[in-house]
């Protein structure tokens, strides 16, 4: 910040002249008492002038703030355009492709860590990421809430969970389908003649005033609330226990092996490093703008030995002037 200080020639030239202070005899003391470093003597033909400045970095505050904001904004737009978000869910053992990538994701395990009061402490998915082309294991690790698995520019977040069951669907006594049905899903089969919706799940079913509810999160008496559609119309809705068979016309179904599935959010956002840098620059800029006020002090020793003092502070000029007067009267408040 090389800046040639302007040397005032009169009070009119610099209205912030400190007039009624009672300066010491030595110009160096003025700078010391007001918290400045030792001054430099300015080159001048006839006048003896000393100068020092501080907090010059404060001039950058506004620049940093606005450039930081711009970087955040551009990075956000870039992330929206160049990044993507997708979801992947399944029970342990499921492996599938990650959309928009050449990677495959395998769910090795999923667990929920309960506290004594049955509140949830953490959800943890054990994951493996493979190359789709070579089947090579690229990364193995866990994804927890607040601790995503990072791989190949992707972040895999523990986003949700629910229950899943194995559904066995029969038609006229023959197995029609055997699959995993996830909470919230609807399975449509046999040319849309039959559909079964996994509406809700009660791991530990009790009836309260005739309504089903769960008395704990643990599968001690698991029941699934299903909705059965037949030829496009809702035909039945009830709870079904594990292994229990429900019949309707030529169809029958049963569910078994209830377990949690994990719901993962997969994000690639190439704008994140830029947004982070912009955010930090913005914060630094705000700090510099409001807490590092640039200040300058100029002291002239007149021929009769008296000192004239000029102050310059683009932000808070009057306060600075007041501080100088106080410092010269009472000693520096900054020492």
């Amino acid at each position: 910040m090389k800046e040639k200080p302007h040397i005032p020639t009169s009070e009119k030239d610099n209205p912030l002249l400190v007039l009624d202070a009672n300066p010491p005899k030595n110009p160096g003391d003025v700078f010391k008492k007001t918290g400045f470093r030792a001054p430099v003597k300015l080159a001048h033909d006839r006048r003896e002038i000393y100068y020092q400045k501080k907090h010059a970095l404060g001039h950058l505050g506004s620049w940093f703030t606005h450039v930081g904001l711009l970087i955040v904004f551009i990075s956000y737009l870039f992330g929206q355009v160049a990044g993507f978000e997708t979801f992947f869910y399944g029970v342990p053992g499921v492996r599938g492709e990650i959309e928009h990538t050449n990677l495959e994701l395998a769910i090795e395990d999923f667990s929920i860590d309960y506290r004594e009061d049955n509140s949830i402490h953490q959800y943890t998915s054990d994951l493996r990421v493979y190359s789709r082309e070579s089947d090579r294991l690229i990364k193995e690790g866990v994804s927890k809430v607040n601790d995503p698995l990072r791989v190949e520019g992707l972040s895999i977040y523990q986003n949700g969970t629910g229950w899943a069951v194995d559904l066995n669907l029969y038609k006229e006594g023959q197995v029609l389908r055997d699959l995993t049905l996830y909470e919230g899903e609807i399975h449509v089969d046999d040319d849309q003649r039959i559909a079964i919706q996994f509406y809700d799940f009660f791991p530990d079913l009790v009836r309260h005033q005739g309504m089903p509810r769960s008395q704990s999160p643990f599968p001690d008496n698991p029941h699934m609330l299903y909705v059965l559609y037949y030829e496009g119309f809702r035909a039945d809705m009830n709870v079904v226990g594990m292994g229990e068979e429900i019949r309707y016309e030529e169809y029958a179904f049963s569910v078994e092996d209830p377990r949690h599935f994990t719901y993962l959010q997969i994000v690639r956002d190439p704008g994140i490093p830029g947004a982070l840098a912009g955010g930090l620059l913005l914060t630094l800029g705000v700090f510099l703008a409001f807490y590092l006020h640039p200040k300058a002090l100029m002291v002239e020793r007149k021929a009769d030995g008296a000192l004239s003092i000029w102050s310059k502070a683009p932000k808070g000029a009057l306060i600075f002037q007041k501080q100088i007067k106080t410092a010269l009267k009472e000693g520096s408040p900054w020492e």
Binding site: E85, V145, N146, D147, P148, S155, Y157, N159, Q265, V267, D269, I272, A275, L276, G279, L280, L282, T283, V286, F287, F290, Y291
Partner: peptide, 22 residues
């Protein structure tokens, strides 16, 4: 204002870790 800026920036960093979006 300085602290509100910090609130938003730290919140964004945390949100990226917890919710997948800053």
């Amino acid at each position: 204002f300085f602290f509100l800026t910090l609130v938003i920036v730290t919140g964004a960093i945390w949100a990226e870790q917890a919710w997948g979006r800053y």
